[in-house]
Design a protein around this nucleic acid. Structure first.
Lengths: 176, 176
DNA sequence: CCGCTCATGTAACTGGTTACATGATTTA
DNA sequence: TAAATCATGTAACCAGTTACATGAGCGG
């Protein structure tokens, strides 16, 4: 079971009954490039989860339009809970993949001029993403009580602010 | 071209000539679960890079032991530089995938008791990884001048500290 | 002589990607 | 009426995974 599969379980648990199309939407709209929400990922995936007995699909009609709505089963909820519940595997706490961090290791392969622009541009792209998350966070908070997806967005903001702090530290260290 | 392919280019640029085995080692030893460094990934990959003309392989002998050492070509270096140089794609600045952040969204699917343990355990795994990175950082700094891989490790430390701060903020928010 | 590291690979599999294909309904 | 959205899927492809297979050299 992949993270995507568990997330689908979670989405259906929270908002079901849903069509596969509706399940895919939040992934497609997510600001994280980790999630794509493409049809080619979702449709085979829900079939897999149905075969495992974690989701139940029901054909529904709505204005002569074919539709198949998904519900989570008892087994599906149990699997979701097992995924969510501690203890977490050590890898769950590991630092994640950051393309900028990865590039820094090889920065000496760049000529000096490009090396200077590297950090300006890195800060630029991180700041842009951070602004996006801040707007999303504001929108998510608007609905009143602190929603869990707002808290998740806040996590991304924390990460990006830490990345900015690190970037300026690196810049300082390398210029000395 | 994947991130892994560019990284291999970078490693050969930095330390070449190297065998594929030696190229794989730093990935296998990396504390990040993103990199595996398995043979099944590396050997087909270096063949691909050779076919593209980015790496050159040369058979070498050492005590009647077969060995194939890799060097980066001019084209390979150009490709590496293009990957390293700004402008970065917007996705390079995006918040990365954090399994704990992902789980938080669905935390209400857990019964109250497990919900409390969730944060204790999340903190635990993050702290453990952070300790690991701190030790690695100390070892990397030992060699004298601030090496780039130490700075990269520092980036991971920043990320994990931000995650801890976020976790306690979430805990506070949810208990109120 | 046993087990570890060095060293090179292959084979089957899998989860996801991109791109394509279809068609109804809604909205500007 | 044209474009966007809802809705469902398939097909080819691909990078990486796990597991297997082989064998030389070295340290205890």
């Amino acid at each position: 079971m992949t993270e995507l599969e568990y997330c689908v379980l979670g989405i259906v648990w929270e908002g079901g009954p849903l069509t596969a199309y509706e399940v895919a939407k939040p992934f497609a709209e997510s600001p994280s490039s980790y999630w794509s929400g493409s049809a080619g990922a979702i449709y085979p995936l829900v079939r897999r989860l149905e075969e495992k007995g974690f989701l139940r699909g029901k054909s529904a009609q709505w204005n002569s339009r074919r539709k198949r709505v998904l519900t989570i089963t008892e087994q599906g909820l149990a699997a979701l809970r097992e995924w969510l519940a501690p203890p977490f595997p050590p890898s769950a706490g590991a630092a994640s993949f950051d393309p900028i961090r990865t590039r820094v290791v090889f920065i000496n392969a760049l000529p000096a001029k490009a090396r200077a622009r590297f950090f300006d541009d890195a800060e630029r792209v991180v700041r842009e993403q951070l602004t996006g998350l801040e707007e999303l966070y504001a929108a998510q908070r608007e609905t009143g009580t602190m929603a869990l997806d707002a808290l998740s967005t806040l996590g991304g903001m924390h990460e990006l602010r830490a990345r900015l702090a690190w970037l300026s530290e690196v810049r300082r260290e390398l210029s000395s």
